[in-house]
Amino acid sequence: MISFTANQAKTQFGEMIAKAQREPVSITKNGKPSVIVMSIADYNALEELKLQNLREKLARSVAQLEAGDLHDGEAVFDELMKDI
């Protein structure tokens, strides 16, 4: 992954955007990773994966409910929130 300091990202914004179209770019601040800049296509793909994961978890929960395998609601939400 390509990395820019926050100052480099500011002064070389156009270059950073061009690179982010090809692969995610890490922006560091005070020597520590701060944010990731990525193309809208990569972002949309990531969001779709997250949605697919949530749908799979909900489908498993419905199947468990239909099988009579009941769970505490709080435990179910804890499981859903674990990956966020």
Rank of each mutant, 00 (worst) to 15 (best):
I2H: 12
S3W: 09
F4I: 05
F4A: 01
T5M: 09
T5Q: 08
A6I: 15
A6H: 14
N7G: 02
Q8D: 15
A9N: 01
A9L: 08
A9E: 04
K10L: 14
K10G: 03
T11H: 11
Q12N: 15
Q12R: 15
Q12A: 13
F13H: 14
G14S: 14
G14D: 12
G14T: 10
E15C: 04
E15V: 11
E15S: 10
E15R: 10
E15Y: 05
M16C: 06
K19M: 09
K19A: 07
K19C: 03
Q21M: 09
Q21F: 03
R22V: 00
E23C: 06
P24L: 04
P24D: 03
V25S: 02
S26W: 02
S26N: 11
S26P: 00
I27K: 01
T28P: 02
K29S: 10
N30F: 09
G31H: 01
G31T: 06
G31Q: 05
K32D: 04
K32S: 06
K32Y: 02
K32A: 12
P33W: 06
P33N: 11
P33F: 03
S34W: 15
S34V: 02
V35G: 00
V35K: 07
V35H: 12
I36H: 06
I36W: 11
I36N: 04
V37W: 01
M38I: 07
S39C: 03
S39E: 00
I40M: 11
I40K: 15
I40W: 08
A41G: 05
A41E: 15
D42R: 07
Y43M: 09
Y43F: 14
Y43W: 12
N44H: 12
N44L: 12
A45Q: 14
L46S: 11
L46P: 07
E47R: 12
E48Q: 13
E48R: 13
L49M: 13
L49W: 04
L49D: 13
L51S: 07
L51K: 14
L51F: 10
Q52C: 08
Q52T: 15
N53Y: 07
N53F: 05
L54E: 08
R55T: 06
R55N: 02
E56R: 10
E56W: 02
E56A: 10
E56N: 12
E56G: 02
K57H: 09
K57I: 04
L58D: 03
L58C: 05
L58A: 08
A59T: 04
A59P: 00
R60M: 06
R60E: 06
S61D: 04
V62K: 10
V62C: 04
A63H: 08
A63D: 15
A63T: 08
Q64D: 13
Q64L: 08
L65P: 04
L65V: 09
E66T: 06
E66G: 05
E66C: 05
A67R: 10
A67Q: 11
D69F: 02
L70I: 12
L70A: 12
H71W: 06
H71D: 05
H71R: 14
G73K: 07
G73A: 13
V76L: 10
D78C: 02
D78G: 10
D78W: 02
E79A: 13
L80M: 15
M81Q: 14
K82E: 14
D83M: 03
D83C: 04
I84T: 14
